[in-house]
Computed example of a mutant assay.
Amino acid sequence: MSAVNGCVAFITGAASGLGKATLKHLLTKGARGVYCFDTQAFPEEVEKRDNFAAYRGDVRSEENVSAALEECYKKFGKIDTVVNCAGVSVAFRLFNFKKNRAHDLKDFADVFQVNCLGTFNVNRLAAGYLYKNTPDEANGLRGLIINTSGNAAFDGQIGQVAYSAAAGAINSMTLPLARDLGVVGIRCLTISCGYFKTPLLAHLPKNILDFLENSTLCPKRLGEPTDYARLVEAIMDNEYLNATVIKLDGGMRMFL
């Protein structure tokens, strides 16, 4: 039986993209409850389900995240898994010499705060709820946190300074988070994504998308949000996975 069956998952960025696909996948696989946390409206197709709830809020806000976690816990009685998919991006060179314009400091701060600080904020506040779970008899496990970064941390392209910095920071947090939480039976991993068919890529022209598809080794396509969702399930099922960054990218390696 899959670990998804009967679980309660708290998912940030769950109104679209990777988070939405994960939400729908876990509901299909028998989750007891799935909680959507996002600044956007939640998916209408699951709105009326008894095992679904949502909160409109910002991952950077201690008040918002605390309120959502408490509401999730009261509604479903526990939180087993936390999946952080909330993220934003900006594309701009450090300095645009043609326009004589430096990278906007606020743009960098916004990306870093949403992606990195937001991930940390959810992690620190969710840990106490995971700790409330009774450890399983076999391995003493209480829960799981899955964070999301991007391959720009390894192969950051021109214009990706902000996104690369935030992704690298999330990757770097993975091991110390796992060490901090492992003493009480909570696992922590990060999924580093290549290019996926999500709203973050919606603005790119077709020739750029075709180039990105050709940059993958096999299969020759962009990632589907369902690829991410199925990896979340696999991590939930395989309790020996911990303290690592898993690249989900079709073997993509980026150039300038």
Results as ranks from 00 to 15, higher is better:
Ala3Met: 11
Ala3Val: 01
Ala9Glu: 08
Ile11Glu: 02
Thr12Phe: 01
Thr12Tyr: 02
Gly13Ala: 08
Gly13Pro: 05
Gly19Asp: 12
Leu23Met: 05
His25Pro: 03
Leu27His: 10
Thr28Lys: 15
Val34Ser: 06
Pro43Lys: 08
Val46Cys: 13
Gly57Pro: 12
Val59Gly: 07
Glu62Gln: 06
Lys75Arg: 15
Ile79Arg: 08
Asp80Pro: 05
Val83Lys: 01
Cys85Gly: 06
Arg93Ser: 14
Phe97Leu: 13
Lys99Asn: 15
Asn115Thr: 09
Leu117Phe: 14
Asn121Met: 10
Val122Met: 09
Asn123Phe: 10
Leu125Tyr: 01
Ala126Ser: 13
Gly128Thr: 10
Asp136Pro: 08
Ala138Val: 15
Ala138Tyr: 07
Leu141Trp: 05
Ser149Glu: 06
Gly150Gln: 05
Gly150Trp: 09
Gly150Lys: 07
Ala152Lys: 08
Phe154Arg: 07
Asp155His: 01
Gly159Glu: 11
Ile170His: 02
Asn171Cys: 08
Pro176Glu: 05
Leu177Pro: 01
Arg179Tyr: 07
Asp180Phe: 00
Gly185Tyr: 02
Pro199Glu: 08
Leu200Phe: 00
Pro205Arg: 08
Leu212Cys: 04
Glu213Thr: 11
Leu217Cys: 11
Cys218Asn: 07
Arg221Ile: 10
Thr226Gln: 15
Tyr228Asp: 13
Val232Gly: 00
Ile235Thr: 03
Asp237His: 00
Glu239Val: 12
Tyr240Lys: 04
Leu241Gln: 06
Leu241Ala: 04
Gly250Phe: 01
